[in-house]
């Protein structure tokens, strides 16, 4: 009992803040998502239907999910390859870690001008492409999607790499030594020791990568504005932003509730897979 009191003394300021500034307002938003804008009449699922039938919402939801489905696996793979390569180095490890982590420290706003110059119709990228005989695009207005994919990977590769390195660190060296005695080659060691050993890390890297993918809105917004010329990068984040400008609270509340549910669902599913894998590993 006494321990309870002590614990709450330390926790209370934070928890009260969370209740007052997050939990109560969010339950207010849930309430509003079932009500009319004017007069506050209960309208059931009407707001939700409005959102789901909204053309802009469909496009945005599609683009956002496509972005996540394409980007997250690429990022996971690339960062894993990097982490394994760096882990095998004898020297200069910290040099490489630093270079891949640097983008994390660079504010998006600082590279906006550079991005514009690189991806412009007559920009650096097209210049480089023409040298090797390829036709370029006006990236920002017709092919903005790959630009965002690149920005996202550039920004997050160091973060994921560090998570993988932590996972690699947790694999015991004796297993590798035993495998070496048995005459296993590098590839076999990777397949039978490293990969299974990294499974516990996969869950958290995936979750964090999905969440960080939402922040790509910053690049999208700063480069292409609230209504990008290339429809393919019109994301849910743009939609929320634009509904907000119109103060469409009902629609936003309904959309926020759905987004929250989807994210919780994704996490639960990943966690399910994760515990199943864990159990399997324990049995082995």
């Amino acid at each position: 009992m006494k321990e309870n009191r002590k614990a709450w003394a330390f926790l209370a300021p934070s928890f009260l803040g969370v209740i007052f500034f997050v939990l109560i307002p969010f339950s207010d938003a849930i309430k509003r998502s079932f009500k009319e804008a004017m007069g506050g009449k209960f309208v059931g699922m009407d707001n939700y239907m409005n959102v789901l039938h909204n053309e802009a919402f469909r496009i945005a939801a599609q683009n956002t999910s496509r972005f996540i489905i394409i980007c997250v696996p690429i990022l996971l793979l690339l960062s894993l390859v990097l982490a394994v390569m760096i882990n095998n180095l004898k020297k200069h490890r910290s040099f490489f870690k630093t270079s891949f982590l640097i983008p994390l420290a660079i504010p998006v706003s600082s590279v906006v001008f550079l991005w514009k110059v690189v991806f412009h119709q007559n920009g650096l990228l097209n210049g480089a492409l023409s040298v090797i005989g390829l036709e370029g695009y006006d990236w920002m207005s017709t092919k903005a999607f790959p630009v965002l994919v690149f920005s996202y990977i550039w920004k997050n590769i160091g973060y994921d790499m560090v998570l993988w390195l932590a996972g690699l660190d947790g694999i015991s060296q004796t297993m590798y030594e035993a495998a070496a005695v048995d005459g296993a080659n590098a590839w076999k060691k990777f397949w039978y020791i490293t990969l299974p050993g990294l499974l516990p890390t996969v869950f958290i890297v995936t979750v964090l990568s999905i969440l960080n993918s939402f922040k790509v809105f910053r690049e999208a917004y700063l480069i292409a504005g609230a209504y990008p010329r290339d429809n393919n990068i019109y994301m849910l984040q743009h939609l929320f932003n634009n509904w907000f400008t119109k103060l469409d609270i009902q629609k936003m509340s309904a959309a926020a509730v759905m987004l929250a549910l989807i994210i919780v669902a994704i996490i639960l599913i990943l966690q399910r897979i994760d515990t199943k894998v864990d159990r399997k590993l324990d049995i082995e």
């Binding site: 969370v18 307002p25 969440l211 926020a256 994210i263 996490i267």
Partner: peptide
């Protein structure tokens, strides 16, 4: 209540800004 409160903290941590944007605006 520690478990449940900590779970709430983790869930809030992983929510993107857009989820809490309306509610933050309201308060």
């Amino acid at each position: 209540g520690k478990r449940i409160i900590f779970t709430i903290y983790i869930i809030l941590m992983v929510m993107p800004f857009q989820v809490t944007m309306v509610s933050t605006y309201l308060v």
